[in-house]
Every structure is written in structure tokens, then in C-alpha cells.
Design a protein around this nucleic acid. Structure first.
Lengths: 244, 244
DNA sequence: TCACATCTGTTATCTCTGTTAACTCTTGCT
DNA sequence: AGCAAGAGTTAACAGAGATAACAGATGTGA
């Protein structure tokens, strides 16, 4: 654990400025505007200089996505810790609202992080690299945040979850492996509640940000509140949502 | 209603070949490979010739998305009509499975259609144009397909839906406007069931295609079957899913 | 203090992209 | 036959990512 040298410090600062500039271009002019030349121009540099900091344009975007992920996780944690640990259900709802708030407040960033095709599963395994697979661990980092809160709530005040027998063997096996990896002594039904809820949360937020709900709704807020109320009820805590 | 002239026919055929070629490039080499020059090369033409058929690269992608939408809607209708109209709940489940099947079978196409940011709602109204807003009516076309089936099922065998009073005034107002536009004499609760279900379906399929579920599941199929069973149960018809 | 090596930036250049203008040839109609 | 519209070409421009070769600055050890 040695101190960073002076060079390392200015280098880190430059890396940070590059990503900040890239993000400003993303927000102000869209993803297509994140070009090495534009970034360099904004910084008073020339494009090839950026290759001293990132090996490629794609690597720069990955770095940006990493920062965005850190920021989003920070928002979620902040929302969680704003409420006392005893009110775990309220914490979960607040964290969900923070997730939606960040996504709708930063649609360009959300799209960059979440709207890329999967890694495997295609007929051609290498296809994902050619498609915009930015942050392979985007959801890998946010899902667990919610799961942790759910587990914490369930420990404090257990609520009914599906019985193991009510799940198909294949699904139960996968969910058991998931909870097993995390070394958490919780019922599989809780994992199912989590995954099912994560699907609902992501679906609603993504549909809203991508504008795929405005064929029916002009404002997603009421629907979101209703779903949050349903979620709270499912967690055994009928929550009267604050009309913020 | 006049017959298409010979010129119009060969022109339509060329337009079709352009979109087919673009799609092949998309599937084989990713979205970045859909360049005018690559398309023209594959067709034995030069790039500027394509401007006789599409005013811009973006317009070409929009046209492609339109075709993909037609294909997907066709798949959904085919899945629906493969079952007798009396089994409306089974029809709905089959249509959902067709949706997932097409999305997972055509991840590149699905991403192109559904993973673009919204039109309005940004601080800057013109931002959406700079972001990849391809088919503004993508979801606008698929949602209603599912809603029609739900309405049909509800007419044949009404199942319990949320009471109007259980919905917040804002949400109820929006849902009433939605059903009102469609001139369908159905309860608002049915619209809520639809929107909520559409969120779950889209969320699950998008998470699967984008690879954002593999932190917990290696195969989404069992989860999907479970959710379909839950959906069928909600519709008043406990459906024993076929172990395909 | 001097010398050497590393780091950070430059310019020049390559191939590729979307796009436009100007031109040629073919097709179809009068 | 003649003429206009359509469909294709080549040439060119600005901008993209990426690489190589070069120029100073920075930091380190003799």
C-alpha cells in the first residue's frame, strides 16, 4: 500500500476528466457524439493522445459505464441508509424509487448501461463483442443490492414466500445455486420473490425510459407507486406511499 | 386502386433486398456492420445508389425496424391463432411464449427495436433524435396485441380484476383514457392487469436478451414458465404448462 | 549535474463512415 | 423519335477510429 506518485495522481485526474467529458457529450448530444476527436477537442488535446489512457474507444465507454455504475450504486445505498434499518421494507421501496429516479433523471446513461445485448446465448458466441456489450456486470451489481435489502427485511420480520415444492425442480435448482453462492441461509422462495420483483422493477423503469409505455400512460409515476404498494404488501408491510 | 407499374415493382424488390441485406449484416456482424457501403457491396452496388431508396442511413434502419415489427406481430398472431378462440387464456400464454421465443431467437433484432431511449421526457426534447430512436411505435404495436387477447378472454370468462377504488385517481384516470381511446367497454382494473403483465413480460424478456439475469440464472426458461403459470392463475385458469 | 529512460503529447497517415454533387445510361411515356 | 424521369456511376468532403513516428517534458539514478 504505497502512496500514489505525483505522476499517478495527474494521470488519474486526466482519466477522470476524459470520462467526465465523455459523459457530458453523451448527455448533451447523445451517444453518437462520444467520439475520441470530440472528447479531445473539448479537452484541448488531440485524439491520439487519448490512447495513452484507453486502449480503444470501446474501452473508454466501458470505463465510463463503470463510473456510472458506481454512481448508481451510491445513489441506491444512500437512499437505503436514509431510513433506519428497522424499516427494511420501507428501505426497499425507497431504494426502488431511487433506482427509477436515477434512470429517469439520466436516461442517456441508463440506456448506455442497460440496453446492450447479452454476452452468450447467441448462436455465435462472439457476436456480443460486436454488439454494444459495455458493462457485463451492470445488472450483476444492482440486483444484489436489492437482494441484500430483501434478505435483511426477511430476517427481521419473515413474511410468507413460496414453498420450495411450488417451484419447478429446474427453477428451484437454479435459485438454490444462486443463494448458495452467496452463502445466505434463506429459503429459495425468497430468491424467487427477489427475481420476480427485480424483473418488475427493471421492466417498468426500462419501458418508461425507452418510451415504450406512453402508448398507454402519459405519466408512469402513478403506476410505479401502485406497483410499489403491491410490493410492500407482498413483503407483509402495507405501506402508505408518501405523495412526494 | 391502380396496379403497380413495372418500375414500382422492381423498386419495391430492391427496397426489400436492401433491408434483407441490412438484416443479414446485423445478425452476422452486429449493428455496427450495417453501413451503407457494406450493404451496397453485398448487393453489387455503390453506396450513393442507396440514397435513391432511403433518404439517410437512419431512415434505412427505421425501415428495417418496421419490417422486424411486422414479422414479430405476425409471429404473435400466428401463435394466437394456433389455438381455438375458446381457450383465450391459453392463447395469451402462447402469445407471450412466442414473444419470448422471437426475442431470444433474434437478439440482435430485438435490441435494435427495443433498446432505444424515449422520445420525450428528457430535459432536452430533441435529444431523442440524437439517440437511437428507431421505431417509435415498437411497443405501441405489440402491447395492444396482448391487450386484445386479454379483453377477449375477459369477455368470454370474466375473472376478478382490481376494483376501480383500489387504484389511485391519477392511475385510474390514465387507464380510463387508454381504454376509452380504444372504445372498449372493459373495467379499468383489466387495463391495470394488462399493463402490469406487459411490464413483467417485457422485463423478463429484455433482461434475458440483454444478459442481465445470468448473475442469478443460467437458463431463464424455468422462471418464464413459472411466471406464465402465475399469469394463467391470475386469469382464472390454472394452466398446467406443457413441458415442451 | 548530467544522462538516460519513461511518459505524454504531437503530426501525419491509413481505412472506414455518411453524405452530396455532377454525370451517364436506361427505362418508359407521349 | 424525342424527352423526362429514374437508377446507377465516379469523385469528393468531412469526420470517425486507429497506428506509427516523432518531440518535449518529467522523473530517476550515476
Amino acid at each position: 500500500m504505497t502512496l500514489p506518485t505525483r505522476r499517478e495522481r495527474v494521470r488519474a485526474a486526466t482519466v477522470d476528466e476524459i470520462k467526465t467529458t465523455a459523459r457530458r457529450l453523451l448527455v448533451e448530444q447523445g451517444p453518437a457524439a462520444i467520439s475520441l476527436r470530440a472528447i479531445a477537442r473539448q479537452m484541448g488535446m488531440t485524439a491520439p493522445a487519448l490512447y495513452r489512457y484507453f486502449p480503444s474507444h470501446e474501452a473508454l465507454l466501458e470505463g465510463l459505464c463503470g463510473d456510472l455504475g458506481d454512481e448508481l450504486v451510491g445513489e441506491l445505498v444512500r437512499a437505503r441508509d436514509a431510513l433506519p434499518a428497522e424499516q427494511a421494507a420501507a428501505r426497499l421501496v425507497a431504494t426502488c424509487q431511487a433506482f427509477r429516479g436515477w434512470a429517469t433523471g439520466h436516461p442517456a446513461e441508463f440506456t448506455l448501461m442497460f440496453a446492450s445485448a447479452r454476452q452468450g446465448g447467441c448462436a455465435d458466441a462472439g457476436l456480443a463483442d460486436r454488439m454494444g456489450q459495455r458493462d457485463r456486470e451492470a445488472a450483476r451489481r444492482f440486483g444484489p443490492v436489492f437482494f441484500d435489502i430483501i434478505v435483511e427485511h426477511w430476517r427481521r420480520s419473515p413474511f410468507p414466500v413460496p414453498e420450495p415444492d411450488s417451484l419447478s425442480p429446474e427453477l428451484r435448482g437454479q435459485l438454490e445455486r444462486f443463494t448458495g453462492v452467496l452463502h445466505l441461509p434463506v429459503p429459495v422462495g425468497l430468491a424467487y420473490v427477489f427475481v420476480s420483483g427485480w424483473v418488475r422493477l427493471y421492466g417498468m423503469v426500462a419501458l418508461e425510459v425507452f418510451g415504450h409505455l406512453d402508448f398507454a400512460l402519459t405519466d408512469v409515476e402513478p403506476l410505479f407507486q401502485a406497483e410499489m404498494a403491491a410490493l410492500a404488501a407482498q413483503l407483509g408491510l402495507p405501506l402508505h406511499q408518501p405523495t412526494d
